[in-house]
Amino acid sequence: MGWFKRSPWVLHYNATSCNGCDIEVIVSLTPLYDLERFGIINTGNPKHADILAVTGSVNEKSRQVLLNLYEQMPNPKVVVAVGLCATSGCVFQDCYNVLGGVDKVLPVDVYVPGCAARPESIIDGILKACEILEEKYSQRKKTGYPAAKE
């Protein structure tokens, strides 16, 4: 019935971002943009989340954090790279401590460009992520759940 589309919960992590996109992610939850219209909640807890919204270009230290968070999210899950740093590294791609882009670490499903990404753009991106979430779920259903692993 497409429940994922109606209730995607977002976990936001700032992996080496300049704050700009983070603010815009937060702003997109507030009265003027109100992501909750689409049932989107900012959960702050990977175990409840469906969508991992990453801002920033990922450095060595935040890489491990991202991997941990991603690992702790239950399937189906989608990664949205918000902002230019997260998609490619922006002006920081030459910096020594920057890996440059979230897709160097995690499989990214939606790229949201913009420096800083506009709230409208973030809304578009997350709605797009919902579709992918839905797809991933139906795929999982077809292939069946894997058995328990210790």
Partner: peptide
């Protein structure tokens, strides 16, 4: 001052 989610949102959440 927000528009807010649909009234049936808790059910959507639960189903999801």
């Amino acid at each position: 001052g927000r528009y807010g989610p649909p009234v049936l949102q808790p059910f959507y959440d639960a189903f999801k």
